[in-house]
């Protein structure tokens, strides 16, 4: 089947302003949008730039705006999209080239919330830090995040204030705050209570719809807000 791609192109070294590249490709209905992008890059225009690595929805490198919504190109079948597919880079980041954006600010915020298990208690020799299934299920949902930034760049609060920590970092913080083995929950909550923290969330719900892993992002954010207000984890 023939489809048309309309891709927002921009090379800051050459172009004054972004422009639309139009391509026509022949694909199978079960091909993913990523395959169509490869088709363009490999056979029509080698200058097209985009990120991808695993091609199977695991690494989170090919999040982009597809027909106006953030999606992973490797998870969208072309048959579920329109005949003309509009592809743009994620919003709110500096475009490095075409569909590649500068994710450094995103990872900087990610590092701020201490995205690792903190526990200085001495371990019993030969034993792991045990946890009941119930304790584990408390943060099951937020372990699924692949840091693709689809949620954060779908958020109007983030577009208007790039300093906002953003849904992805809150999800990551949630994953450790509600982990019974972790000891730095209070510290993370303190960070998220700052003016650029969790209160910038205006319950827009774009993040929930954008997450390619189906994480209930607004629920995680609301749980963090409630933990702050009711002082209870």
């Amino acid at each position: 089947m023939k489809i048309k791609l309309q891709i927002k192109r921009f090379n800051p070294e050459k172009d004054r302003a972004p422009w639309w590249g139009k391509y026509e490709v022949d694909v199978e209905p079960n091909d993913r949008l990523l395959d169509a992008l490869h088709e363009v890059k490999w056979r029509q225009d080698g200058t097209l730039a985009f990120r991808r690595s695993c091609a199977h929805g695991v690494c989170g490198s090919d999040a982009m705006k597809i027909n106006g919504r953030n999606r992973l190109a490797c998870k969208e079948l072309v048959r579920n999209l329109s005949r003309t597919i509009v592809v743009e880079p994620l919003m709110g980041f500096r475009v490095l080239k075409d569909l590649i954006v500068d994710m450094e600010p995103f990872f900087k915020k990610y590092r701020q919330i201490h995205p690792y298990l903190v526990n200085e208690d001495p371990e019993e020799p030969g034993r792991e830090r045990l946890q009941t299934p119930a304790e584990r299920s408390r943060f099951e949902d937020t372990t699924k995040c692949i840091l693709c930034a689809a949620c954060t760049t779908a958020c109007p609060s983030f577009w208007t204030n790039p300093d906002y920590v953003g849904p992805a970092s809150i999800v990551q913080a949630h994953r450790f705050i509600f982990d019974s083995r972790d000891r730095a929950g209070a510290e993370r909550l303190h960070i998220l209570n700052e003016s650029e923290g969790v209160w910038r969330c205006r319950t827009v719900f774009n993040c929930a719809e954008a997450c390619p892993r189906g994480i209930d992002v607004p629920k995680a954010i609301a749980e963090v807000k409630r933990a702050l207000v009711f002082k209870k984890i």
């Binding site: 106006g68 919003m91 779908a154 109007p156 319950t203 719900f205 774009n206």
Partner: peptide, 15 residues
């Protein structure tokens, strides 16, 4: 423009 849902619409109206 981002094609958001009810949440984005109500956020805009609220603003």
């Amino acid at each position: 423009m981002y094609r958001g849902g009810v949440g984005q619409f109500s956020y805009l109206l609220h603003r």
